[in-house]
């Protein structure tokens, strides 16, 4: 089974609000002293892929620094990595770039993305990628099982070490989170799945040795021009601002708080 995991490098979302600055004219966040990290849902996606087994390619679209995201993916034991050099763009552009790269790198049975990114949080990459590739899409998944030789194979975290799943699976079963609980979805590959976080897909910590090895592995490199992706209209960010909040917290004792809570709930 061949899996591609689309991954994005972003400004560390943990940067405290007091250190967060924006460039209002360029309508983007200032890098400042914040570090760059891999979007957490992309790491959840890679972890889910590693647990499902198969041959995994990590793919990113981003500036030179995004190579770090691929090196970390390789250290987590992705088998190959590809970098499309370029920057920015609306969700449709990103999906078109990724789709073009996937056509060159594929074929793949499973295409994974994170459910959304921790910077702009548009949450559209996986869905638009599915449309660009003409594939079905299952969103907000946290577990993937593959049907092989007549039986369902549970993702158990061990499969990545073995090459147990070599052949295209005949069916894929996805567990996904919904507002009320979860759903089980069955599908035939190929398909796109967007991944959310759960207790069982917390990204593994790579071994030091694997981190060092990852720096020696070759990357497949593309540019947006090579892929032949032309800019298209979609949407524009016309304003970006940090909201000013004027909340003053009134510190109370338990009696005072009980009184306030009783007042608020009595008015409902």
């Amino acid at each position: 089974m061949n899996i591609v995991v689309c991954m994005k490098q972003i400004l560390d979302p943990e940067v405290p609000a007091r250190d967060f600055r924006i460039d209002a004219a360029r309508r983007e966040a200032e890098r400042g002293s914040a570090s760059l990290v891999t979007n957490i849902f992309c790491e959840n996606a890679l972890e889910t892929a590693l647990q499902s087994g198969g041959n995994i390619t990590a793919l990113t679209y981003g500036p030179e620094s995004a190579e770090d995201t691929l090196r970390k993916a390789l250290a987590m034991k992705a088998n190959a990595a590809a970098h499309v050099a370029g920057e920015g763009g609306h969700p449709l552009h990103v999906a078109q770039v990724l789709a073009a790269a996937i056509r060159k790198l594929g074929p793949f049975d499973l295409i994974l993305t994170g459910r959304e990114s921790g910077d702009w949080g548009a949450g559209q990459t996986g869905a638009l990628l599915a449309e660009e590739l003409g594939l079905p899409c299952v969103s907000f998944a946290d577990k993937i099982e593959v049907m092989n030789d007549g039986g369902w194979q549970m993702a158990d975290g061990k499969a990545s070490d073995s090459s147990a799943i070599r052949h295209p699976p005949s069916a894929i079963r996805v567990r996904r989170q919904t507002d009320a609980g979860f759903e089980t979805v069955e599908a035939q590959p190929p398909l796109v799945v967007t991944i959310t976080n759960a207790e069982h897909n917390v990204p593994r910590i790579p071994k030091v040795r694997d981190v060092m090895m990852a720096h020696k592995q070759p990357l497949t490199r593309f540019t947006v021009d090579e892929l032949g992706v032309a800019p298209a209209d979609y949407y524009e960010i016309v304003e970006l601002a940090i909201p000013q909040k004027e909340t003053r917290c009134e510190l109370l004792d338990v009696d005072g708080l009980a009184q306030r809570i009783a007042e608020i709930t009595a008015a409902l």
Binding site: L11, P13, A17, F20, I22, R27, A29, G118, D119, W120, G121, D233, Y234, Y235, E236, I237, V238, E239, L240, A241, I242, P243
Partner: peptide
């Protein structure tokens, strides 16, 4: 956007 640290106005072009 940015985890609630900023807000954006997005203009749809299609």
């Amino acid at each position: 956007v940015y985890g609630g640290k900023a807000h954006a106005v997005v203009e749809v072009r299609r």
